[in-house]
Design a protein around this nucleic acid. Structure first.
Lengths: 330, 330
DNA sequence: TTGTAAGCGTTATCAT
DNA sequence: ATGATAACGCTTACAA
């Protein structure tokens, strides 16, 4: 690989001048500039980002932390982030935390060592106190995930509303025995907590109380969904509807229910969350809460870029709309 | 951020000794080593990978080029690659080419500038002659995608066989009017070409000829699948079975067929490729060709690591098994 | 066993 | 307008 010195030598000028051309500084004569450009072309020279980074300038790489890429919600979110970043000349590095605290720390360390210039977190595994301490090494932005009293810029949806309208919809269909699946626990901070609240609010308004055996926590995958349905089948008193925290789980529930000869939505209604492509694929098609992933990814990158440029943000929280998509599973 | 000099100062030793401890060189006295370790801990020091990279050693970052992350086949493949790499202390950077030649070149340039130490390509957009030229900047490995006469290490499946057993299966079910969907073109090099061959071989053996209007090229997504089905519906003479190059396309075909009141597999049989999770979700469940994504990802990383270490490879081509998963759509 | 010093490819500072 | 030089944080001959 040719270096800046090679270009300098070939063009008969100094490294400084070459550097000035590269970073197009104002005070370089047209004559010399052309000389340098010719030499660069001739050697097909590319500046070394490593060296530049060492020198302490470039801020072009964005790290994105996701739980797992095989969850379509996140693959679509990452896709939106990557596309937007690329258009703006930024590179994206994707990290899977696999819901693992240590791995998350490993990745945040890349911020510390300047491997990435900023981090977009779509989920948080460690306590906020731990994550916060990394803010001194570079900007951190929350996207999708959020904390209720945190001092971080956040791009989020109104999860309370999401769970609320979903549950309300089940109530309107006449259900009174409603089960609830969440990806998190039933009482924590942030996104999942808000969904729990939205669910409980709707239940209360309907004059219903939450039945603990019908609450399933830590459910993420299609397999989890199948397992949930098997548990429900074993119950003496079964719910007539299930609210889930993800389309994948909902899909698993539907597949297993049909396997056991149940009809959907007659015997059991199911509502998903995300509006993933599979929602249209499964039969019956899935009623679900649509999250505007593309907009969320775009917005997140736009804000991250502002943060990297040390621009002031107008707001700390950007909230995007969420809506019910009514199909056939309810 | 503390540097190696800070550690040296605090421990009262030289940078060299600290460096020796970091890279655990043999000849350091236990005494000094402990001194250094204590200082490192005290400062919570992390060596700067940027500086190390500049010095020209570290080879720990692997780039992976995929067409799009929202295709489950690739998200699962990337997942396997990432997990394996992480276990071996390697970092993975994911690039979406979006089937775009320029973007692919942009990413290969990271190899040139030492941003990544090796590249795993799961698809190739540019001509091999172009890609090959990047080999001088670091190891390139083909995974999933392949070329028939190329001098690159490759981890691949027997695509001829895959298409062959799929088509054969349709023949055995008594079909004679078989349509064919591919992600590529109907006559190129590599993976898709082999599938075409497998398809044609089975057709010939069944005494059938390929009907051009029933060949659909460049089909990738569920939407593409729906469009294909709509085209088929408009035909005077319709095929009774469709072989597709991906479960997503097959899913789209099934959804659209059901929408139009057709029964599957009675009116039209559909066979997918990949065995993605959606294969179990769609009704009827999808008959498909399983590709061992996990094994493929694992193997690819293992070989890439060998290449990075300049170890000699026993073979240039590693072929993994492929099998028919028979469900209800045929 | 340990330390000194040069060098990796840039850019910023200070002269000229 | 241009050039010499130091500095970024690390590794590695070479010396001691």
């Amino acid at each position: 690989m040719p270096t800046i010195s090679d270009v300098a030598k070939l063009s008969g000028l100094s490294k400084s001048t070459v550097s000035r051309v590269i970073n197009n500084y104002p005070h370089v004569s047209k004559e010399k500039r052309e000389l340098v450009e010719k030499a660069m072309k001739e050697l097909s020279y590319t500046p070394s980002p490593t060296a530049r980074r060492m020198r302490g300038q470039v801020t072009t790489t964005i790290g994105v932390i996701i739980p797992r890429i095989t969850n379509p919600f996140f693959s679509y979110l990452v896709n939106a982030i990557e596309q937007t970043a690329y258009k703006n000349g930024h590179q994206v590095i994707i990290f899977q935390s696999n819901e693992n605290k240590e791995k998350e720390i490993d990745f945040l360390n890349l911020l510390k060592t300047n491997q990435v210039d900023g981090v977009i977190m779509t989920a948080i595994e460690n306590d906020w106190e731990v994550v916060r301490s990394f803010q001194e090494f570079g900007p951190i932005l929350l996207c999708n995930e959020y904390l209720n009293n945190a001092d971080v810029p956040t791009v989020r949806l109104d999860q309370i509303k999401g769970a609320y309208i979903g549950t309300k919809h089940l109530l309107e269909k006449g259900h009174t025995k409603i089960a609830y699946c969440t990806g998190g626990l039933f009482a924590v901070d942030g996104k999942d907590c808000d969904r729990n609240q939205g669910f409980q609010k709707a239940m209360q308004e309907g004059g219903l109380t939450v039945n603990p055996p019908w609450v399933f926590v830590n459910k993420h995958t299609m397999e989890d969904g199948k397992a949930v349905m098997r548990q429900i089948l074993d119950m003496k008193e079964r719910p007539t509807a299930v609210f889930t925290g993800s389309d994948e789980v909902a899909g698993g529930i539907i597949v297993e229910a049909k396997e056991s000869g149940l009809n959907i939505p007659e015997d059991i209604a199911v509502i998903g969350f995300d509006d993933q492509p599979l929602a249209e694929l499964v039969a019956p098609k899935l009623t679900t809460i649509r999250q505007p992933v593309n907009d969320m990814g775009q917005k997140a990158v736009q804000i991250m870029i502002k943060m990297l440029n040390h621009e002031k943000l107008e707001q700390m929280e950007y909230e995007l709309p969420i809506e019910l998509i009514c199909r056939q599973s309810t």
